[in-house]
C-alpha cells in the first residue's frame, strides 16, 4: 500500500527527516514510536500533504501512485486520513456541516453521486456509536471547546465517517482516559480489515495492547533505526530509547 524510500525533508534550514524508509502492506497496522522531536508528526504531515515541509530527496508511493505529486485534497480523495495530534477548532462550523462538506467534496471529485441526507444521518449514527461520541458533541462546532480527549475521539469519529484506505493516527492515545482509550481502540479495531492499513504513532506500549500492530518501528533523528514485531514495544518500554540510538 505505502512505500517510503530514502525520504529527506526539511523545514526552513532544519533537516528533520534524513533518509527514512518504511513499507506498509495492505491490511497491516504499523506502529511508530520514538523520542520527542524525532520527526513522527513531520512524517504524518508529509504523508498528508502539508506543504510547509520541503521534500529534498526520496519518494513515497501509495498504491502505485507517486504521492508527492498530489496535493493534500487529492491525497484525502485517494483515501489518506490523518488523525491529528492537535486537532484544530473551527468556530461556527458544525461538525455535521463539516463532515457533509468533506464527504460531498470527496464524492464529487470521485465522480460519485452526493450522499443522501438519510444515508448521511444513518452513517453519523453508526459511526458515533462506534466511538460512543456524545450527541451534543456531534452538533457543536468542530472541536470548539472540546476537551483534549473529546477532540481525539472526534478524530476517530471522522475517520469512521470518511472510511479511508490508509489512516495515520498521530498520538491519538495521548489525553485519553482509560475508558476512552479502550473505546477508541475498539473503534479502530472495528475498522481494521484486509483492505485498510494504519500507521499508529504513539509513545505508549499500552495502546498497542489494544491495537495490536503487525510491525513496530523506532524513529530517531529522522530515520527508522529499528523495526520489529510487537514485542519491540515492550522492549522499548523497559529500556527507553538510548539503546536503539546507540545502536545506530
Amino acid at each position: 500500500m505505502l512505500k517510503i524510500t530514502n525520504l529527506h525533508a526539511r523545514i526552513g534550514d532544519t533537516e528533520i527527516l534524513r533518509g527514512l524508509n518504511l513499507e506498509i502492506a495492505t491490511g497491516e497496522v504499523h506502529a511508530v514510536m520514538g523520542p520527542n522531536g524525532s520527526g513522527k508528526s513531520t512524517l504524518a504531515s508529509i504523508l498528508a500533504g502539508r506543504d510547509d515541509y520541503e521534500v529534498t530527496q526520496g519518494s513515497i508511493e501509495f498504491n502505485g501512485v507517486d504521492l508527492l505529486g498530489l496535493d493534500a485534497t487529492e491525497r484525502a480523495v485517494a483515501g489518506i486520513f490523518l488523525a491529528f495530534q492537535y486537532p484544530v477548532e473551527i468556530p461556527g462550523v458544525s461538525n455535521m456541516n463539516f463532515l457533509r462538506t468533506a464527504i460531498g467534496s470527496i464524492r464529487e471529485q470521485k465522480g460519485q453521486d452526493p450522499i443522501s441526507a438519510k444515508d448521511f444521518l444513518a452513517k453519523v449514527k453508526r459511526c458515533a456509536q462506534l466511538v460512543e461520541l456524545d450527541g451534543k458533541l456531534r452538533d457543536r462546532s468542530v472541536n470548539e471547546g472540546f476537551s483534549g480527549g473529546e477532540k481525539k475521539r472526534n478524530e476517530i469519529f471522522q475517520m469512521a465517517m470518511l472510511e479511508p484506505m490508509f489512516a495515520v493516527l498521530d498520538e491519538t492515545d495521548s489525553g485519553l482516559d482509560i475508558d476512552a482509550l479502550r473505546i477508541v481502540s475498539a473503534g479502530v479495531n472495528a475498522m481494521r480489515d484486509e483492505k485498510r492499513s494504519f500507521l499508529v504513532i504513539t509513545h505508549y506500549q499500552r495502546l498497542l495492547d489494544h491495537i495490536v500492530p503487525d510491525r513496530v518501528h523506532v524513529l530517531a533523528a529522522g530515520q527508522i533505526v529499528r523495526s520489529g514485531g510487537k514485542e519491540l514495544a515492550l522492549e522499548l518500554e523497559e529500556k527507553g530509547y538510548d539503546w536503539v540510538k546507540e545502536a545506530v
Binding site: A48, A76, L82, F84, N97, F98, A102, Q109, Q158
Partner: peptide
C-alpha cells in the same frame, strides 16, 4: 490544512 486533509478543496475550505 485540517479541511483540506478531510478532502475539501481550498475554495470549500475558505468558504466553510
Amino acid at each position: 490544512f485540517y479541511c483540506l486533509q478531510r478532502g475539501m478543496t481550498e475554495e470549500q475550505a475558505i468558504g466553510l
